[in-house]
């Protein structure tokens, strides 16, 4: 069930360079189950920005009717969002999209969770739910540098956690694929979210038999009506077959969409 609700800001904190952690409270949280879904936020009531901003859900706390997002304040919309203070309200539409299937991993399995930059947040709720299910999680987190990294300790509390930074200021110098190779990481299932080049590299590496990736795309409506965020499928890469990232995804089985 998709709802629209004015949710209340409980806290907003800057946790790394340009990275904010925002926690909202409201009834809409009761609709949140699957990790990897997103909410669509109207950051103000003005005509600029006109459209909503899709932000992934980083953790869900149903008991207290609150959820947390982690986002990078980069464009006009997210910079306005970063100014929201505790007690203020935000127009939230959600939860939207299809998330990561937790049940695809069996108890006792090992899952490799690979995130790049602002693709890391949805993996946190995913890891929590996998661990509750008895799935062992290994995390590989990629960032530009140490000062833009976040949640490394939080992930470490849930399972082995490896970090790669482009400038080498934290963990392995290079990309997530370098860290995976260097430590010889193996798993039964892969879950990943991050920039397209990273997802392509993971798909080519064929680390696991099954895997799921979460895509990012400029969106209009966020509910599948406007056709702004479509992509081709792997089986019909130049034809008319398509998937909508917002409503068919953002999570897809590896090999379903053309990257």
């Amino acid at each position: 069930m998709i709802n629209k609700e004015w949710m209340t800001v409980l806290s907003q904190e800057k946790i790394a360079v340009n990275i904010y952690e925002l926690t909202l409270k409201g009834e809409l949280v009761q609709q949140m189950n699957e990790p990897g879904r997103f909410v669509h936020l109207k950051v103000n009531e003005q005509m600029m920005p006109l459209l909503r901003r899709p932000i992934s859900v980083a953790s869900i706390d149903k008991e207290n009717s609150q959820f947390t997002m982690i986002y990078r304040a980069e464009g006009e919309g997210t910079k306005l969002l970063a100014q929201k203070k505790a007690g203020e309200t935000i127009d939230v539409l959600g939860p939207l999209g299809n998330g990561f299937p937790v049940e695809a991993a069996q108890p006792g399995d090992t899952a490799l969770l690979v995130g790049g930059g602002i693709g890391v947040p949805p993996l946190y709720e995913l890891s929590k739910q996998l661990n509750e299910r008895g799935v062992r999680t290994i995390h590989v987190l990629g960032f530009q540098s140490a000062d833009t990294s976040f949640y490394v300790e939080a992930f470490s509390a849930l399972g082995d956690t490896y970090v790669a930074t482009v400038d080498g200021s934290l963990g392995v110098k290079g990309f997530v694929t370098d860290a995976i190779q260097q430590y010889g990481l193996e798993a039964d299932i892969l879950y990943s979210c991050g920039p397209l080049p990273m997802l392509r590299a993971l798909e080519e590496a064929q680390l696991t038999k099954k895997g799921f990736i979460s895509l990012e795309e400029r969106m209009g409506c966020g509910i599948g009506a406007c056709f702004a965020c479509v992509c081709h499928t792997k089986s019909d890469p130049t034809g008319t077959d398509y998937r909508k990232v917002c409503s068919d995804g953002p999570v897809f089985p590896i090999g379903e969409v053309a990257l």
Binding site: M47, E217, M219, H232, T240
Partner: peptide, 22 residues
Amino acid sequence: FGNPTPRVAETPGGMLNAIGLQ
């Protein structure tokens, strides 16, 4: 199928789209 993405861009008080009749 329509046009390649990006298909939308915001402007003050508006948006540009080039979906391409998908």
